[in-house]
Amino acid sequence: MSNVNVPHLLLSRHRWRWPEIAFWLAAFACLLMPSKHLILNEIAILALFALSLDLILGYAGIVSLGHAAFLGAGAYIAGLFAIHVNGDPLLGLLAAAAACGVLGFITSFLVLRGSDLTRLMITLGVALLLGEIANRAAWLTGGADGLQGITMGRLLGLFEFDLYGRTSFTYSLVVLFVLFLLARRLIHSPFGHSLTAIRDNPLRAAAVGIPVKRRLIAIYTFAAIYAGIAGALLTQTTQFVGLDVLSFQRSADVMLVVIIGGAGYLYGGLIGALGFKFLQDWLSALTPQYWHFWIGLILVALVLIGRDRPRRLLHSVQKYVTNRWQSLTGSKAAGSSTGGA
């Protein structure tokens, strides 16, 4: 163990690898498929939402049953902001992010209390509470009819939101990419490493001098902002907000998204969103009304089989291709196969 160069090891994880570059190239190549822009937009938003959950679930180990609280809050705030204040999309995005940051900060103090069980109760309770408020405050939110009459201005004053989702998808994808870069930077910083330490053993993390509570508050707030932005994107690109953005179903679905893709390596949420949408499309075509049965079955099966299997498969594919590539080119780049943990 003594001859492991720690700073070098940490830095090597930070470096961009070819699968990551290929992933983002493929994502931006999707802009060339105009007929699929609407569903791709949904996938990008879901991916951002899942990325947000991954930050607290995969990195900080907080199990949340009500992450939709922030998605919904962001969605409603972006909608209300567009109606009552200003139709500019980016300003709306900022407003939603700020509001959800405050909400996340306040609720984080409740979430930090107690065990996993209390966390489940609190996160679920907060989401239900917000859902009930949105339902009751019909004069503001439109209640069960949803928030209507949202008209968005042009993006950057130039691009109009069209019916085919071209602007929408480009907008969502760029926001997703920028926020992803930020999250990636954060996760590979000392702050990010301290989070993983807390997840693996809070007691030991506290013992080596990590301020556990403050770190958890910070990441929870940060994740809330991400989820709020995802909600704002949802509102701005569909120009409608329904009560279902706060539903338990949303929270459970996003959990499944992260689990499908694998928690704790940032790409899990993005890959999971893709997988989930295809799954949803396929299942709801099969049995329109009862597709949640199959979602449930998949959850149960995934847990029983072991949910890190898909991720391990992905890792071994990456290793195989890298090794293949190296043996083909004959170059032996130093330490490039010391993969992430």
Binding site: L57, V63, L65, D116, L117, L120, A252, M255, L256, I259, A263, H292, F293, I295, G296, L297, I298, L299, V300, L302, V303, L304, R307
Partner: peptide, 14 residues
């Protein structure tokens, strides 16, 4: 706990 939560939510959906 995460596995248990996922598992039992799956059962609820079913």
């Amino acid at each position: 706990h995460l596995d248990q939560v996922l598992f039992s939510i799956g059962l609820v959906f079913m």
